[in-house]
Design a protein around this nucleic acid. Structure first.
Lengths: 230, 230
DNA sequence: GAAATGCTTCGATTACCATCGAACTATGAA
DNA sequence: TTCATAGTTCGATGGTAATCGAAGCATTTC
């Protein structure tokens, strides 16, 4: 069967515990330095350097050099999507114990996925946008409707500058905790950073958890007209 | 970072060349025996047995015993989706040479992906169904509209028995050659097997290629009202 | 300039695991 | 029963790659 060695190569890249730790850490979307990633994985910087080199040539990471620092981030959203998919597989297989734990609970509720909002709240946002006709599938791809543009602008996001950029505006991304899609793309990222700017939510340092304030939840629900009991 | 060892485990499972070959072979959706898979991977049956055991306990494979044979298939559609995603990553990174080759060409045109139609033609089918309002996104998930039901039935697919089954009727699946979705789920599988029954298309033994006959292409285009030059 | 910090390269060590031959179990055929 | 086929278990072997100490390069700070 042709094409098999390829998936083996990237599979092997992900298949090392140290590298997997680094990739998981980068799922937050933040760019991290080599030494930060080494600490995250619990290995020395030499070893980390070797790993990071392999991940880069393997096309999983993007690198930016800044002074004497080297910042690593996931190569693109597709890499993030594959990693999310892998996590989802695991979650399905685990007996039940994966459901417990307050950390896990919080992750399922709302977490960052490559700089956009994932988890329960992420799905609610996505569903709401679709339900109000702000997003639609135009035959091929997810796109923002005229009324959607209006809504997003009134919410305080500078849609024009997003459209200027090279990145795709709307994209869907599969969730591992739920089995549903949520909003990715530059609009997805803009939403999350705007939530942070409005102080509705805050990232918990060192994890992927996003903690919404009580007031933040309330505003979120009313903005996207979500019934609080669901 | 929590949750990292998990993705490492499945990553490592995929990361072995022999196992990757087996998984690729199973992407056709067909169930294969242990010795067939051993031959596919170019290893002895003993080694294959060991690999298959690991893949099963890792949750990637489903096993059915039938007499003295043991049939292996991918555990579910999600596993298939992750594998497709991995192939897509590779395809994006490869320089350009991955574009050449007649086999590759044929794969891009139409191939089987876990028993449903993928590739260029798969996307055309999906787009056509959406464009005619036969499929729609109902807030959360892809579903068949009333007119869609009518269309599918008139085409000769027994939609009732599909709806009885436990499997999801419509699902979307991301393509690696294009960057678009195509139709998966039990309806997707029903379409492909009906194409085969009508002799529009035939699987090429030992590969994932689906070869459409000239007449088959014509019928396909007219059924889904696709302009032949696009 | 010198010292400090961030990262890379080199070499030696170690641990893991894919591989296969040989022997074994289980199911089916004659 | 006897033979054949499908698959598993066991043990030995070999190769690959992760790991870290030590030394080296590059950049910034003092």
């Amino acid at each position: 069967m042709k094409g098999s060695p390829n998936i083996a190569k990237t599979g092997a890249l992900i298949g090392d515990v140290a590298r997997a730790s680094m990739l998981s850490a980068l799922m937050s979307g933040k760019a991290l330095t080599a030494s930060e990633l080494a600490r995250e994985a619990g290995i020395t910087v030499q070893t980390a350097s070797s790993h990071l080199g392999k991940l880069e040539t393997g096309g999983l990471l993007r690198v930016r050099k800044q002074g004497r620092h080297k910042y690593f981030s996931l190569a693109n959203e597709r890499v993030a999507a594959v990693l999310e998919g892998l996590m989802g597989l695991e979650a399905g297989n685990e007996p039940l114990r994966s459901k417990v734990g307050p950390t896990d609970e919080a992750l399922r509720r709302s977490r960052v996925c490559y700089n956009h909002l994932a988890g329960d709240l992420g799905i609610q946002l996505y569903d709401s946008m679709l339900g109000h006709g702000f997003l639609e599938f135009k035959a091929k791809e997810l796109s923002l409707t005229p009324s959607g543009v209006q809504f997003v602008e009134r919410f305080g996001i500078d849609i024009k500058s997003l459209q200027m950029g090279r990145a795709v505006l709307c994209r869907e991304c599969l969730d591992w905790s739920e089995r549903r899609s949520h909003l990715a793309g530059s609009l997805g990222r803009a939403f999350l950073s705007h939530f942070e700017r409005l102080r509705w939510a805050k990232r918990v340092e060192g994890t992927r958890i996003i903690r919404f304030t009580p007031k933040g939840v309330k505003s979120f629900n009313s903005t996207f007209s979500i019934k609080s009991n669901v």
